[in-house]
Nucleic acid binder design. Structure first.
Lengths: 220, 220
DNA sequence: GTAATTCACTAGCGGTCGCTACAAAAATCA
DNA sequence: TGATTTTTGTAGCGACCGCTAGTGAATTAC
C-alpha cells in the first residue's frame, strides 16, 4: 500500500486540456470543477514567495481554492506538485536566460542581456521577488527537493560556460579566457541579484549592478 | 566532527576558591550539568547547516545533548536561541568582513581581502558551507527572523558603502565613483559565493571568482 | 432508466511541531 | 539537619503537518 499516487494526467501531452485535439471522447466521470492551469499558477506564486517547506498543503489548498483531495488527485503529493511548479516556472518566468544564450550573437552579449533582464524580472511587482530556483528550496528538509534545484543552478552555470567555450573556439573570445570562472561569475551575479531583490533592491539598482558586473569581461 | 565525548563537567575537584574568575558567590540552586558555550556552538552548527525552520527543537536538544527544559531555561525559546546564535556566529565566524574594513588601508584592499577570505571561510570543511546570515532564514515563516537577517545583510552592504565613501572623500577613489553600486556589487559577490559554496564550488574556484570580481574597481 | 466512472467534501489519521507542568535531584543557606 | 533554590528528566499538551478513507455528487456509457 504505497502512498504513491497514480499520476493519471501528469503525462500531459502538450495539447490543450479538453478543447483541442482530443482522442474523440469526453472524459468519463464527473468533470473537474477548477482550472488546472490557474491552480498551478497560484501554486507557483505561493512556492515562489514562501519556498517549499514554508508553504503548507493547507496554504496551497487555500490559494488554489481547491480541497486537499482535489489537489492530490490533480497534482500528486506536495513534492511532485513542487516539481511541476519548478518546471512550469522555468517555462513562464525563467526562460529569459536560455533565450539570451540562444539568441544573442556572442556569449558576452548573452550574459549582458541575461543580467539586464534578471534585474527587471527579479523586481517585477507582478510576482514575488527574486528567483524561485535560487530561493525556494534552501534549508529544505527534503534532500531530493534541495538537490533538484541545486542541479538546476549548476546546470545553468554549465550552460553559460558552454556558450563561452563556443565563443573561444569561434575566436570571439581570447583563448586564454577562463570560461569556468566567467560562467561562475555570471551565476554568482544572478544569485546575488536575486537575493538583493528579495532584500529590497530596486530594478534600477540591479541594472547598475548588472552593467558594472560586465566590466570583468575581456575587451573584444 | 569529533566524536566528542560529552564530558559531564566534573565538579571542580581542588579548592573551589581559586577556580578561574568566579562571579563573587556561587549560584544558589542545582548547578547546570552542561557547558553553555559548547551547547551554543552545537546550535550554531545546526542552524548554519539546516536553517532556522528546518532545525527543530528536537534536533537542537539532540545535537546539544540536553533536554528541552534545559534548553528553554538556558536560552529562552527557539527564536531567542537563534538570535543568540546569529550574534555569536558573527563573532566567531563572520567577523572577517568587519576586520577587513577596519584594518585595510583602502576600501578596495578591504573588499579584496573580504572576498578572498570569504572564499576560504565559505568552503572550510571544519563547518557547514556558506554564510549563516545569507542562508539560515530564507523562506522563513517567522517574519521577524527573516527580517533580522535581511537587516544584517543590508547593514553589511551599508558598511562597505561607508568605507568606499570615506575613500572618495579622502581622495583614494575618484569622485565620480558610484559608492552604492560598488558596495552592492561586493554584497552580491559575497552572497553569490556563499550560494555557490553550498552548491559545491571549491575554495580555489571561489578565489578565482573573488579575484576577477575585483576588476570592476577603478584603477588607482 | 441503470451502471460505471471520476471528482468534491467532510472528517480525521498518525506524526511532528514548539513548548511546558510536574516532581525528583543537586546544590547553597540557615 | 531541614528549607530554599535551581536544574533535570519524563511525559505530554494543543496545534499543525502531509495525507487519505469514505461518502455523496456529477457526468458518460449502455
Amino acid at each position: 500500500m504505497h502512498p504513491m499516487v497514480t499520476n493519471k494526467e501528469s503525462e500531459e501531452k502538450g495539447g490543450g486540456a479538453r478543447a483541442k485535439a482530443r482522442p474523440a471522447s469526453k472524459p468519463r466521470g464527473r468533470p473537474r470543477s477548477f482550472d488546472r492551469e490557474t491552480a498551478l499558477e497560484k501554486a507557483i506564486l505561493a512556492f515562489w514567495e514562501h519556498g517549499y517547506e514554508a508553504t503548507s498543503v493547507s496554504d496551497l489548498t487555500r490559494v488554489m481554492d481547491i480541497g486537499a483531495p482535489s489537489l492530490y488527485a490533480a497534482f500528486g503529493d506536495k513534492q511532485s506538485l513542487f516539481e511541476e511548479v519548478v518546471r512550469e516556472y522555468g517555462v513562464r518566468y525563467g526562460s529569459f536566460a536560455d533565450r539570451a544564450l540562444a539568441e544573442e550573437p556572442t556569449a558576452r552579449a548573452a550574459v549582458a542581456r541575461m543580467l539586464r533582464e534578471a534585474a527587471a524580472e527579479y523586481t517585477d511587482p507582478a510576482h514575488p521577488y527574486g528567483c524561485l530556483v535560487v530561493h525556494a528550496a534552501t534549508n529544505c528538509s527534503t534532500p531530493e527537493v534541495e538537490e533538484s534545484l541545486r542541479g538546476r543552478r549548476n546546470a545553468n552555470i554549465a550552460a553559460i560556460r558552454s556558450r563561452i567555450e563556443a565563443d573561444i573556439v569561434a575566436g570571439a573570445l581570447p583563448a586564454d579566457v577562463d570560461a569556468g570562472a566567467l560562467a561562475r561569475h555570471a551565476g554568482a551575479m544572478i544569485q546575488g541579484m536575486s537575493q538583493q531583490a528579495r532584500d529590497g533592491a530596486s530594478r534600477e539598482e540591479l541594472e547598475v549592478l548588472a552593467e558594472i558586473a560586465m566590466s570583468i569581461w575581456p575587451r573584444t
